[in-house]
Every structure is written in C-alpha cells, then in structure tokens.
C-alpha cells in the first residue's frame, strides 16, 4: 500500500503544480442588454474592471494599429473601442481630403488626411471618450472610446456580449454617446466566479441618433 500512498502524493503535487501554472481559471460572462422598452440594444460598449485589472501590453501597436477609417464622408466604425496605450490609424479611404480633430480631454488632436497619404498612427494614452469631427465635412462624427481594461466589447445585434475573464469581482460599465448620462453613470457590481449570465436594461430612453446625417453624398459639402 506504500506505493499507492506515494502515487497519491505525486498526483497531489502535480495537481498543485498545475494550479500554480494556471492560478485563475477563466469564466465566460454573457451580458444581455435591453433598452428601457425591453428591446435588445446593440452597439453599446461594455467594460469590466477590478482592482486587479491591468493592461499588460497595448493591443494595438504602431505596427498593428486599430483602424478608424473615413468612407463616404463618415467615420467607420462610428465607435472604436481600444485599451489605453493603443495606436489608431486614420487611413482615409475617400478620394478627397479630411481634417479630423477632437477637443476631448482624453486626446485633443488635429490631423489632416490627404487621399493616399496616410499619416502615422496616433497613440491614445488616456482613458475616456474622444469625440471627433471633420473641419471640412461638418456632419462627420465619430468616437474613439479608450478603456482602462483588457475586458471590453460591444453588444451584438441581439444586444449580447460574452467576455472571457478571470474570476473576480468586477465593476461593469456601459458606454455609448447615445446613453443618457444617468445610465452611463451606473456601475454594476458583478461577481464572476464561473460561467454566468447577466441581464441589464436601461432606465432611460436613448438619445436620438440622427442617422440622417449619415446619408451624405459628394455634393453635401458645397
């Protein structure tokens, strides 16, 4: 029986070592978001943060930047989410020039975009909302939302988002330029111990999106 006890000891040591190599098992948190009428809400940014959350390495480097394009006199995507320290490129797919600017505290900048001459990507080193316009096309509006966590995403067409995170107690925050400030100020406490689901709904109506501004043509800047 000596052999069996030695085998059990060995097994315990292996299990403990495995624990040491992979101390925190990941869990899936699925968020389902609906508006104040109960309809699924797409394209809303969800972030999870805890005191232990750190961004080890920026996801988007100068060599592999995130892309905020300009297509048909609009920003594409309308909302780009990047972790703090990421680089963002503005390639300008239009055959005309743009003059992108922002007055947001997180990243005030101006960038002239000539067709076929993409400038160097810009670093977004401070968390927060960066609202951008174009000095030539007044109706253009886009956002870079810089987050302080590697755990983030946008809800899909069904208002859902699944984030894979280490088990922890998290603060969940929603963001979109269309959220009422009372909804974006709410911090949801979420204890993610294992795979779990959470249903959230807004208390207030979304602000109007004015999608008619997106229906521009090449003659609108006259």
């Amino acid at each position: 029986m000596l052999y069996l006890s030695q085998f059990i000891k060995m097994l315990l040591i292996v299990v403990i070592m495995l624990q040491w190599i992979n101390p925190a098992q990941a869990a899936d948190l699925t968020v389902s978001l609906s508006d104040n009428q109960g309809n699924p809400l797409p394209n809303i940014v969800v972030t999870l943060t805890s005191p232990a959350t750190i961004i080890e390495e920026a996801e988007f480097s100068p060599q592999h930047p995130a892309i905020m394009d300009q297509i048909d006199r609009q920003f594409v995507p309308h909302i780009l989410v990047v972790p703090k320290g990421s680089y963002v490129a503005f390639p300008n797919s239009d055959s005309i020039q743009h003059h992108v600017y922002s007055f947001s505290k997180a990243k005030p900048f101006e960038l002239k975009l000539y067709s076929g001459r993409p400038p160097q990507p810009l670093e977004f080193g401070q968390a927060g909302e960066v609202a951008m316009g174009c000095n030539i096309h007044d109706w253009m509006l886009g956002y870079v939302y810089v987050v302080d966590t590697p755990y983030y995403g946008k809800t899909n067409a069904r208002g859902q988002l699944t984030l894979t995170v280490p088990p922890d107690d998290y603060q969940l925050i929603l963001w979109s330029p269309l959220l009422d400030s009372k909804d974006s100020a709410v911090q949801y406490s979420v204890d993610v111990a294992a795979d779990s689901k959470i249903d959230l709904s807004l208390k207030h109506a979304l602000l109007p999106a004015f999608e008619g501004f997106e229906q521009s043509d090449e003659f609108d800047d006259y």
Binding site: G133, D138, W139, M140, L141, P208, F210, G212, F213
Partner: peptide, 10 residues
C-alpha cells in the same frame, strides 16, 4: 453644426 450640438438642424 447640428451633429456637433445633438440637433437635426444646422
């Protein structure tokens, strides 16, 4: 500019 002021009117 309407878009910058959350208004449909410019």
């Amino acid at each position: 500019s309407g878009r910058m002021h959350r208004s449909p009117f410019s």
